[in-house]
Simulated scan of single mutants.
Amino acid sequence: MTKRNTKAKQLILNLLKAAKSALSQDILQAQLGDAVDRVTIYRVLNSFLEDGVVHKIVGDDGKQYFACCKNCSDKKYQHNHFHFRCISCGKIECLPNEVEVKLPKAYRTLNFNGVVSGYCSNC
């Protein structure tokens, strides 16, 4: 089954690609206004997540943020890198270094979520 490229998907993807940091659903909603409803945004983000277009970050504030995947053509790619959340401006960004997590034999990683919080260079 082929997934349709809807106007909502394209609008959300354009915002995520243009963003210099990860975006939450409420940030996307504020930028989209009435063009796309809240439920559609969640549905599109989950679809992008399943398709490997974005990865999800759960911030230390409990919110979910989404960032476009770069060099992630392999759907088995693990996003084992830390993220930085500025406690002043709220920006969340991917940090460049991958982290190797050695698990005991027969353990499998399904998710990695590492967030460092502090002040960004602009704050």
Rank of each mutant, 00 (worst) to 15 (best):
Q29S: 13
Q29A: 13
Q29P: 02
Q29G: 03
Q29H: 11
Q29R: 13
Q29K: 15
Q29W: 01
A30M: 09
A30S: 13
A30F: 03
Q31V: 02
Q31S: 12
Q31E: 15
Q31F: 02
L32T: 08
L32Q: 07
L32I: 11
G33K: 10
G33Y: 04
G33R: 11
G33T: 08
G33N: 10
G33C: 08
D34V: 10
D34G: 10
D34W: 07
A35P: 02
A35V: 07
V36L: 11
V36N: 08
V36M: 08
V36Q: 08
V36I: 13
V36E: 08
D37V: 15
D37C: 14
D37W: 14
R38I: 04
R38Y: 06
R38F: 06
R38P: 02
R38W: 02
R38V: 04
R38C: 01
R38D: 06
R38S: 11
V39C: 04
V39L: 13
V39T: 13
V39E: 10
T40L: 07
T40G: 05
T40E: 12
T40C: 05
Y42P: 01
Y42E: 11
Y42T: 11
Y42K: 11
Y42I: 07
Y42D: 12
Y42F: 06
R43W: 03
R43S: 14
R43D: 14
V44I: 15
V44C: 07
V44W: 04
V44K: 04
L45F: 06
L45K: 05
L45E: 12
L45C: 12
L45M: 12
L45Q: 09
L45H: 05
L45I: 07
N46K: 13
N46W: 04
N46Q: 14
N46C: 08
S47K: 12
S47E: 15
S47W: 05
S47T: 14
S47I: 08
F48S: 09
F48C: 09
F48P: 03
F48L: 09
F48W: 04
L49W: 03
L49K: 09
L49S: 10
L49A: 09
L49E: 14
E50M: 11
E50R: 14
E50P: 01
E50D: 14
E50V: 11
E50H: 09
D51K: 12
D51N: 11
D51A: 13
D51Y: 04
D51S: 11
G52C: 02
G52F: 01
G52Y: 02
G52S: 06
V53T: 15
V53H: 04
V53D: 05
V53F: 03
V54K: 00
V54Y: 00
V54H: 01
H55R: 09
H55A: 08
H55Q: 10
H55D: 14
H55P: 03
H55T: 10
K56M: 15
K56N: 12
K56Q: 15
K56C: 14
I57R: 00
I57D: 00
I57M: 02
I57C: 01
I57G: 00
I57N: 01
I57L: 01
I57K: 00
I57W: 00
I57Q: 00
V58K: 13
V58F: 03
V58Y: 03
V58M: 10
V58I: 14
V58L: 08
G59K: 00
G59M: 02
D60F: 00
D60N: 07
D60C: 03
